[in-house]
Nucleic acid binder design. Structure first.
Lengths: 232, 232
DNA sequence: TCAAAAGTGTTGAAACTACACCCATGA
DNA sequence: TCATGGGTGTAGTTTCAACACTTTTGA
């Protein structure tokens, strides 16, 4: 283990982001349409190179704020997903990319699709059938799988809701991410009885027709003692 | 997103390994005693720099074989753990390290402690109380947590056993990794009734006193339909 | 009064824990 | 025959899915 930099091939270190939110009952990811070669006109994940003296997580947070305008904070989750480093993944040179996964509440996002037509929120299923730039389809696939698994045993689904939400809104998050419907009665019982999952607030809210629902905020239990289950 | 290499700080990309096995009913990791500065005489994880044109996973497998003599194959598991890239994690320069987690059956390992005194299998608890080189304590901590969680819902505990094993030997793996005892009767029922977890072989084996036990091999189900549970 | 969504009750099935008990071997 | 660990039986408890039913609102 001799040292830098003589024996080393030049390697670029990049950070790519899978930013997920829920729009129109669909799990959506932020995608950027490439305007230059390689992979011109294909969709790509937002990302960029690591800066001098910058921590990996800091680079990811910086990119997230640049692309969405949302500063790192409470109604937001960001975690490292995996690192992709196949020798030929970028035709221009050797680039190792550390992928991050972020969840953002839709209510925090600017109304429009972003700056011009080159950035868009696209449903992940639609995005995955189109060919994406680089190995970004593989990154997105892994991100969606991780997300589907993670909301089972953590309270991270609450991040997709705003600061306050009803149990039905929280259930809609699970249904959008898993693509299956859940029994409203059983989900309600489970969510409200799980210690630390959600915290009841004063007041009620009506979302369309029917009886108004109680309002909750996210609880403090990051790990759920009993998982929320998908179909078996 | 202009390109390489002008705007980039020189970054070294390394691969570090957490290699786990079970010895004397203890979860043990392979550690290397550093002989040079920095962190001279501290324990470090095995690792090295990524080579030109080499995939990350290939670099990890290569390091694993170099350090343990075990070629990548059946009785072995290796997966990416996480990437560590704090700016000051290596005092000699900027190094981003992709950590991998490997499980090896003890029976595959050479009998002695390895080549000389600078490599050793140490119990993870003992290793974690001593100060390690770089941020390797953090990497090892994450590896142990991942391992403890992962054997709950996958069949990876079988990797720590040899090609064939008894249910009691498999139970001993869980007990070593979790540091708690499990009910032999209930564990036996669960392991043998789980579809695809273990496959019964002809023959029996006696491990010390008592009735000889049936012999099994690992089944094909990577994910267990119902988790093996630790104490709640 | 009706439709719709929120929320509670109930029941039968399944899974789990704890532990009693039998089986097969060596000493 | 005793000690030891392998393996099966079983009873009480807990969890869960399914769905009936009540509550609260707007139209």
């Amino acid at each position: 283990m001799l040292f830098l930099p003589t024996e080393l091939t030049p390697v670029g270190v990049a950070v790519d982001l899978v930013v997920l939110t829920i729009r129109q009952a669909q799990l959506c990811a932020l995608a950027i349409k490439r305007t230059a070669a390689p992979f011109q006109r294909r969709w790509a994940l937002p990302g960029g190179f690591l800066r001098a003296g910058e921590d990996l997580g800091a680079a990811a947070s910086r990119e997230l704020e640049e692309e969405t305008g949302v500063p790192a904070g409470q109604l937001l989750h960001i975690e490292q997903l995996a690192t992709f480093g196949a020798p030929k993944r970028d035709p221009r040179g050797r680039v190792v990319s550390v992928a991050y996964l972020a969840f953002v509440a839709a209510e925090l996002l600017p109304q429009a699709g972003g700056d011009a037509a080159h950035a868009a929120w696209l449903g992940v299923d639609a995005l995955l059938v189109a060919p994406m730039a680089f190995d970004h389809s593989a990154i997105l696939t892994m991100a969606v799988e991780r997300t589907r698994a993670k909301i089972e045993y953590t309270n991270l689904a609450t991040v997709f809701c705003g600061a306050t939400f009803t149990i039905a809104e929280l259930r809609a998050v699970y249904e959008a991410i898993w693509g299956e419907t859940l029994d409203p009665a059983n989900f309600h019982r489970k969510a409200t009885s799980m210690p630390g999952f959600v915290v009841e607030q004063v007041g009620k809210r009506q979302t369309g027709e029917g009886r108004p629902a109680r309002v909750y905020t996210a609880g403090s239990a990051a790990q759920l003692s009993v998982p929320i289950r998908r179909g078996r």
